[in-house]
């Protein structure tokens, strides 16, 4: 148990660190847009009408070019940002969905560890304003089917209640209990049971 705890803690330190370095690297490699000034100063003055016309044309051209350039830049910029964000999000989402919270036998009480995990999930949900989440309650295969569905329901509900408590809109959270119907580990030993007594989170 303690070993596991240390591993989790280590992961907690390492993963955000990794994510940070990844996003920084992206930012460095990106080129800054600087086309607008150079285009504007390109041509010297000639005669009036021609100059005006030229100027106009030039301006138009410049404007067009600027527009195009800026348009391009913006596109590039958003694409990059989105990509970055997507990767951030994907990693966060992956973590959000991969990290379950665990329970004692015949219990739906949240352990300290579970509270920490839920707090992080809450922070994630604060950032991802539009996302709604499915909270799945599961049990180990000891005990009987109906009681376990009720117990899974309570586990999901206690996770939900925690998230609502820290300010997540209850409407964004749906609970589903699967009881003992969907074990992650079909083994019949303490380790498997501990893995199966969980609440799992899915972003819709």
């Amino acid at each position: 148990m303690r070993k596991k705890l240390w591993i989790y803690l280590a992961l907690l330190v390492v993963i955000p660190g990794l994510m940070f370095t990844v996003s920084c690297a992206k930012k460095v490699t990106q080129a800054e847009p600087s086309a607008e000034e150079t285009v504007a100063e390109a041509e010297p003055v000639k005669d009036d009408s021609a100059r005006i016309a030229e100027e106009k044309a030039a301006q138009e051209e410049a404007a067009r070019q600027w527009e195009m350039a800026s348009e391009e830049d913006i596109q590039a910029e958003t694409a990059a940002k989105e990509e970055e964000l997507m990767q951030d999000m994907a990693a966060a989402k992956l973590m959000f969905e991969n990290e379950d919270i665990y329970f004692d036998f015949d219990s739906s009480a949240l352990q300290t560890m579970a509270r920490e995990v839920l707090q992080r999930k809450g922070n994630f949900l604060f950032e991802l304003v539009d996302a709604s989440v499915i909270v799945e309650g599961h049990c180990d295969d000891r005990g009987t089917a109906a009681y376990n569905i009720a117990l899974g329901d309570r586990r999901a509900e206690s996770a939900k209640a925690f998230l609502v408590d820290i300010g997540i809109d209850a409407l964004r959270i749906t609970t589903i209990s699967y009881g003992e119907e969907r074990p992650v580990d079909s083994g019949s030993n303490a380790e498997a049971w501990a893995k199966n007594r969980r609440v799992h989170f899915v972003i819709e």
């Binding site: 109906a146 569905i149 009720a150 329901d153 209990s177």
Partner: peptide, 10 residues
């Protein structure tokens, strides 16, 4: 069908 929030079992 009874399809409310939460579970409907047994």
């Amino acid at each position: 069908v009874v399809s409310k929030k939460g579970i409907q079992i047994t």
